[in-house]
Simulated assay, not measured.
Amino acid sequence: MNSNQTVEKLRQMRLSAMADIHYQNVKNNRFSEFTPDQYVTLLADHEWEDRQAKKTERLLRQASFKQKASIGDIDYSHARNLEKNMFERLAALGFVQKKENIIITGPSGVGKSHLAQALGNQACLVGIKTVYSTTSRLLGKLKLSKVDGTYIKELKKLQNTQLLILDDFGLQAFDSVTREIVMDIIDDRFGESSTIVSSQIPVSAWYDLIGEGTIADAILDRLVNSSHRLDLKGESLRKGILKNE
């Protein structure tokens, strides 16, 4: 069997990265540089790294982040009650393995969304399926799914998501439908997966925000009691950006 046939068979088996590096080595006659074991390892490693890179790219795309944010970009110099050691422990993602939640609260502009998405980005880099959405957008989508009959399907997708990020929680008032949707989401995920919630509204006001005491109690019991809390303070970071422009 000639090398071209080998390359073609590798491509047909969807081992395209392996096929590419084998083709280059054949073309450049580099076989003498490797023992058979080394060459097999080279091919396997190249295919593995290519697949991992594609998986990460796919996870980042499917997460639908609003902005590019990474753990390495976090600025701890601002006085906003963000403790570096604590946040870096969260960035190790042990909370996802333990199926715990994170609640990030604070006034507008202190970086709640950026921190949440940085954690989400880190999760994607290590292969954790993540979904980001503003709360109002997600609830609007699920409201429509109740009409077209795809509600259970959409809930199942969220249930199978290891990390869900709900941004801007509570900016819009809850009605009876959205209240029940939030309950369904949180109940499905309780003890099964992790949720990050960011909000300008302090947790102490969520009971009244959600409304309907029984449902509010159930949501808060499942979400808050199993959560790490980041309560950010200080002025908007956007003010400094505007001053520098």
Rank of each mutant, 00 (worst) to 15 (best):
S133T: 12
I21D: 09
L164H: 02
P36H: 03
A79E: 14
Q67Y: 07
V224D: 12
L144A: 12
D167I: 05
A91W: 07
S226D: 07
K68M: 09
S226F: 06
E235Q: 12
T130W: 00
A123N: 02
E235T: 08
K27V: 04
S32A: 15
R14E: 13
L144Y: 12
G120E: 05
K66E: 15
L163Y: 01
M18N: 01
K146Q: 15
R11L: 09
K157F: 09
L119C: 00
A218K: 02
K239W: 04
E180L: 10
P36K: 01
W206K: 00
L164I: 07
M86I: 14
L163K: 04
D50F: 12
N81M: 13
I196P: 08
V7S: 07
A123G: 04
I128C: 03
E180D: 13
A118E: 11
Q24L: 10
M13Q: 06
K143M: 13
S176V: 13
D188P: 01
Q97E: 15
I21L: 09
H78S: 06
S3H: 12
S227H: 01
A218R: 00
R61L: 09
F174Q: 00
K68T: 14
E235G: 03
L42M: 11
Q122V: 02
K55P: 02
M183A: 06
F31Q: 10
R30D: 05
S226R: 12
M1C: 00
V96F: 03
S32C: 05
N101E: 03
Y151S: 04
L230Q: 01
G149M: 04
F34K: 05
K243D: 07
K156S: 14
M18A: 15
K239A: 08
D187W: 01
L223I: 03
Q117L: 05
V126D: 03
D184I: 03
L158Q: 03
K156M: 10
L15K: 08
R229V: 13
K233E: 13
N160T: 06
Y132A: 11
S16R: 11
L82T: 05
F169E: 13
D50M: 11
D221Y: 04
K143L: 11
R229I: 15
R222H: 08
I181P: 00
E235A: 13
L142R: 00
A17C: 14
I201R: 07
Q162F: 06
L82K: 08
G213T: 02
Q12C: 02
E8Y: 07
L90W: 15
A123W: 00
F65E: 11
G140F: 03
D217F: 02
Q38A: 08
T56M: 10
Q122I: 02
L139W: 11
L90V: 14
V147L: 13
Y207M: 12
M1R: 03
I215L: 08
R189E: 05
V224Y: 11
D184W: 05
I241P: 00
V147P: 01
D217H: 00
D208P: 07
D188H: 09
E212V: 05
A92Q: 15
K141H: 09
E47T: 14
A79W: 01
T6C: 06
N160F: 06
V96I: 15
T41C: 04
E154S: 14
